[in-house]
Nucleic acid binder design. Structure first.
Length: 432
RNA sequence: GCGGAUGUAGCUCAGUUGGCAGAGCACUUGGUUGUGGCCCAAGGGGUCGUGGGUUCAAUCCCCAUCAUUCGCCCCA
């Protein structure tokens, strides 16, 4: 019985930190629904083949990072390593294209990749995912980017900036690939790292993405895909950038931006933070016009992004000091016999919309008042201090030390008055 | 898959050129107090990650192993 611990790369998330996640989800629901996106909940497992066909068999994700295993009947299942594949599968399966011209959905949940854990990277990690299927217009690319940046502003992360690139389409990318491969072959092989020498042949575009300084130096003069896309792609990208300019959305072009998943084309983008360690990529996405048909559906265009919640949480943790709701009361139990009464009293208070806890163990006045103080409760109720315990309760205001003794019977009235006070104070606070 | 760092009290961490295991916070009890926050005193709590080896003696040195963590890689 030595394996009674969390699985490597999986985590238990407790209160102060878990609140960050509900905060992100709430903001996402609010913002995305304002743009017409609806929440979609999909399974966390799919048949393995789905991911091989969508993400690309050659990618690292499929090659060595998937949680894949047979079910009881020998079918190969995989815990989803990303959300887009499942969403597109669902879109096709439910004939969504026949029901509406454009489908806009968002989804959150856990994703699974068998990687070495480190800061901002877990084996079970969480993403917020948005997908828009059915629109090929460049304006939708711009809208989804504006929405993403709006979401970040809502979280208080207004310093984030997207990087953009275009990857061309099926028409113009192969030609660029050849051009790039030719350029790379012209370089001294010793100037590139081992990784890049291999990638040069298998996937030359990814050489641009290499972070080794010497590789970057030697590929600085490489042809830029922006300069070599076809007229249609060029026009598309120009419209997207034009809207970002008109809306004064800051961004930067990154000709080296190449996505790791095979299905991306045309507009791609990534949002990187420099403040959260080596895993700085906070969100990434782009257009995938060929994916739906590739998975057996109609020829429908799509665009979307995924946003890493662990990485967002790292940024939020620096900024937010959300200690949670301050309790209204704490009930100190001074004699064991008073515990039942204390529980009933707590229940009365909670049903009158106040929040708080009680001690389930009779302890000294000193330690219990300290508990009330540590919890930052407004009031401490003392139960069982004298022979009238069964009928009265002493209520002490923690701020002033003032205390009153009231019959238990009127505790409900007292709680209702407290709740009214609280609401009034909150209203006043908002006007300031 | 490859590298570096770290595993000592519930938490955060000191420490020993190898010789009875430490602090702060937290907890318990008492004192002080406006019945609590500050202050004072006392107390409980540890196979020093695990398994081997060296030694009169290992928490410390050596080997192995597990875990955590930061990087590489990859990606959100």
């Amino acid at each position: 019985m030595s394996n009674m611990s969390t699985i490597k790369g999986f985590a238990d998330l407790y209160a102060p930190e878990s609140r960050l996640y509900t905060f992100m989800e709430d903001a996402a629901r609010r913002i995305f629904s304002a743009y017409g996106y609806g929440e979609l909940r999909i399974p966390i497992m799919e048949y393995t083949e789905l991911f091989c066909r969508s993400i690309g068999v050659e990618t690292d994700v499929v090659q060595k990072e998937m949680y894949t295993f047979p079910d009881r009947k020998g079918r190969s299942l995989t815990l989803r390593p990303e959300a887009t594949a499942g969403i597109v599968r669902s879109y096709i399966e439910h004939n969504c294209h026949a029901r509406e011209d454009i489908s806009k959905v968002f989804s959150f949940g856990p994703m699974f990749r068998y990687e070495r854990p480190q800061k901002g990277r877990m084996r079970q990690f969480h993403q917020i995912d948005c997908e828009c299927l059915g629109a090929h217009e460049p304006q939708i690319d711009a809208e989804i980017l504006l929405m993403l940046m709006h979401f970040f502003r809502e979280l208080g992360l207004s310093e984030l900036r997207p990087e953009l690139n275009t990857l061309g389409c099926g028409e113009c990318r192969p030609a660029f690939r050849k051009l790039l491969a030719k350029f790379l072959r012209g370089l001294d092989p010793a100037s590139l790292c081992e990784n890049c020498r291999r990638r040069m042949e298998t996937n030359p575009m990814r050489v641009l993405d290499c972070k080794v300084p010497s590789c970057r130096e030697h590929t600085a003069g490489a042809p830029r895909i922006l300069d070599h896309v076809c007229g249609t792609c060029n026009e598309h990208f120009k419209v997207v950038l034009g809207i970002l300019d008109k809306s004064s959305t800051p961004y930067s072009l990154n000709p080296r931006l190449v996505r790791g998943l095979d299905y991306y084309m045309r507009t791609t983008f990534e949002v990187v933070s420099s403040s959260i360690g080596a895993q700085g990529s906070v969100a990434g996405g782009g257009r995938y016009d060929g994916l739906v048909s590739q998975l057996g559906g109609p020829d429908i265009p799509g665009i979307g992004f995924a946003c890493g919640m662990e990485r967002l949480a790292l940024m939020l943790a620096d900024k937010r000091q959300d200690s949670g709701a301050k309790p209204d009361f704490y009930i100190a139990v001074l004699v064991p016999d008073a515990t039942d009464t204390a529980l009933m009293a707590a229940q009365t208070m909670r049903e009158a919309h106040l929040s708080g806890e009680l001690s389930f163990e009779a302890k000294s006045m000193k330690s219990q008042l300290r508990q009330a103080s540590r919890r930052n409760a407004d009031y401490c109720l003392l139960m069982g201090e004298d022979e009238l315990a069964a009928h009265t309760v002493i209520i002490k205001h923690m701020g002033s030390g003032d205390q009153v003794s009231i019959p238990l019977i009127s505790l409900k009235d007292w709680a209702e008055i407290r709740y009214e006070d609280k609401l009034q104070k909150q209203r006043k606070g908002n006007y300031r």
